[in-house]
């Protein structure tokens, strides 16, 4: 059970994160993202895909308020994201950055407990309910066995599951994940996608940045494709987005699209000389 399922009614199903025509440049004049639109809704899993350096991670950082857009608007539940107090925002919106590198090694359980921060008082002490929620989130992500393991000794797949448990402990309505499967083998990558799918089915809104088009096609409800020109090329169902012409334009190369051998979803591969 997710934390929300245990507390029916706590999660507001209408909670919608919406970006309209947002642009951002790290260096003035060099756009990292130009005029992007996207909507993240509870119960829906959205994949953000596109070539390296297209602005996927930038979009995610804008969506969670780590960056403020140069132009365009981002609203959460109808209110401007920038006007929501950071702690209140954190109770609605979870964010899992790419390649988390802790400076000090905590246990898996302590790692998950960090997710309770937006709910703690000035002294940061955890109440029994906070610990219960952390335990439940570990059970929910099948990480209870790792409880006392040092985070730095966990395998890549275990780390991601523990990190997701930590994000769930934040009890968000929406969760934004930046390449959670980047360092994982195909089996563990699929496991993480299946976990995100289940959480979405239980009511969590998910946006995931990924390079794995095929897993995204298999598990996401919708895809947003950002091209090498930092613009959104297509948004819609995987079948709508994953066509040879759309992908080819976004990646500026030849992409072939077929059918996944058993899932039946679109299956994309870069074309070129092979051995």
């Amino acid at each position: 059970m997710t934390p929300s399922a245990a507390q029916p009614g706590v999660r507001d199903m209408a909670m919608l994160l919406s970006a309209q025509a947002v642009s951002y440049a790290y260096t003035p004049g060099v756009a990292a993202l130009a005029g992007a639109d996207i909507q993240i809704a509870p119960g829906c899993m959205t994949g953000i895909v596109g070539p390296n350096g297209s602005g996927k991670s930038t979009l995610l950082r804008l969506l969670c308020g780590l960056l403020a857009p140069d132009s365009g608007t981002i609203t959460l539940d109808g209110k401007a994201l920038a006007r929501i107090a950071p702690r209140s925002r954190a109770q609605i919106l979870g964010y899992l950055p790419q390649a988390v590198q802790p400076a000090f090694s905590l246990t898996a359980f302590e790692t998950v407990c960090l997710g309770r921060y937006p709910y703690t008082g000035a002294l940061g002490s955890l109440r029994e309910t906070d610990l219960d929620i952390a335990r439940r989130c570990m059970a929910d992500t099948q990480t209870s066995d790792l409880r006392d393991r040092d985070f730095s000794t966990l395998s890549g797949g275990e780390r991601q599951r523990v990190l997701i448990a930590g994000s769930l402990a934040q009890e968000p309505n929406l969760l934004l994940l930046d390449e959670p499967t980047a360092a994982l083998d195909l089996h563990h990558a699929r496991e993480v996608f299946a976990l995100m799918r289940r959480l979405a089915d239980e009511g969590l809104g998910i946006a995931v940045v990924t390079h794995d088009l095929n897993l995204a096609a298999q598990y996401c409800d919708a895809l947003t494709l950002i091209g090498g020109d930092h613009r959104v090329h297509a948004a819609g169902s995987p079948a709508e987005v994953m066509t040879e012409s759309t992908l080819g334009a976004a990646y500026a190369s030849t992409i072939r699209v077929g059918k996944h051998p058993f899932a039946g979803t679109p299956f994309a591969a870069a074309d070129g000389a092979s051995r």
Binding site: A85, R89, A90, V100, Q170
Partner: peptide, 8 residues
């Protein structure tokens, strides 16, 4: 980044 996203 996680710290920032959690409201710090």
């Amino acid at each position: 980044d996680l710290a920032e996203s959690r409201g710090i």
